[in-house]
Computed example of a mutant assay.
Amino acid sequence: MTGRVLLAAAVLFLLAFLASPDSFAWLFQPVTRNNAPAIYTQTSLLSLTLSHLVLVGLAVAASTAVALVLAVLVTRPAGREFLPLARTVTSVGQTFPPVAVLALAVPIMGFGAGPTLVALFLYGLLPVFENTLAGLTGQPPNVAEAARGMGLTPWQRLWQVDLPLALPVILTGMRLTAVISLGTATIGSTVAARTLGEVIIAGLLSSNTAFVLQGGMVVGIIAVLIHEGFQMLERTAARRVGLNR
């Protein structure tokens, strides 16, 4: 109960802050120096937040789609031999730091959201792929026997049995990808992507702690909300398939 109250309070605070940042100037004024502004006003914080979320949403959707397809393919009899290759491909994003991906992508794609999307996409593949793989391969043997006994074709079994049973684990992978991407997206502002990293970078360049706190606070609260939201979806999906989570 206490957790829900705190979560609701965080949502209300975030909405109030984004709607009227100037109303919270008193909160950040103590950490400013030399009469520096307490609130970042160069760009609307609400606009930056929405742009940040759209960027993360697109990256997570793309990572999830590709990772799901790869996991399904390598768990079918015809594609099992490609499992090592799929693992190598999905591990690339974790092997190269996002900053390195940005440095490689900017000369090809130019500045803006493009390089950031590529970095987030690559970085988000592995959690979804490995969780989907675990969900599809870790089911009890009697499930396969029951599916065959019902006369289901391999693809019918995939859509009607395997994926629904694996959904809670898949959602866990998506949660990890979403939270990681949300924080990682802040570095996109170094290549002119419109993210909340703009506020943090402005604070670092001007030695204004208030700006750094604002950017970090918004990202942090949203990360908690995404984490809790996905956990609710995981519990709901688990109950629907008769799992206790």
Rank of each mutant, 00 (worst) to 15 (best):
R4G: 08
R4N: 10
L7I: 03
A8N: 10
A8V: 11
A8R: 10
L12K: 04
L14K: 08
L14P: 00
L15H: 00
F17A: 05
F17P: 03
L18S: 08
P21I: 08
P21E: 06
D22K: 15
S23F: 14
S23N: 12
F24D: 05
L27H: 06
F28G: 03
T32P: 04
A36E: 04
T43P: 00
L45N: 07
L46A: 08
L50Y: 02
L53M: 03
L55E: 05
V56I: 06
V56K: 09
G57A: 11
G57V: 05
A61S: 07
A67I: 02
L68E: 01
L70C: 01
V74G: 08
G79N: 04
E81T: 09
L83N: 03
P84D: 03
L85S: 00
V89I: 15
T90C: 13
G93P: 07
F96A: 14
P97E: 07
V99G: 12
A105R: 01
I108H: 13
I108G: 14
G110V: 13
G110D: 08
G112E: 10
P115Q: 13
P115G: 13
F121E: 03
L122H: 13
L122S: 12
G124K: 10
L126W: 04
V128Y: 00
E130R: 06
N131K: 00
A134R: 04
P140F: 11
N142E: 10
V143R: 01
A144T: 15
E145I: 13
P154Q: 02
P154M: 10
Q156C: 14
L163S: 10
A166P: 02
V169R: 01
R175T: 02
A178V: 06
G183P: 05
G183W: 07
T184K: 09
G188A: 05
T190K: 10
T190F: 09
V191F: 03
A193F: 13
T195E: 08
E198G: 12
E198H: 15
V199A: 08
I201G: 05
L205R: 09
S207N: 00
F211R: 10
L213D: 02
M217G: 07
V218Q: 05
V218W: 07
V219S: 05
V219I: 14
G220S: 13
I222D: 01
I222K: 02
I226N: 04
E228M: 12
L233S: 04
T236V: 07
R239N: 04
R240P: 00
N244F: 03
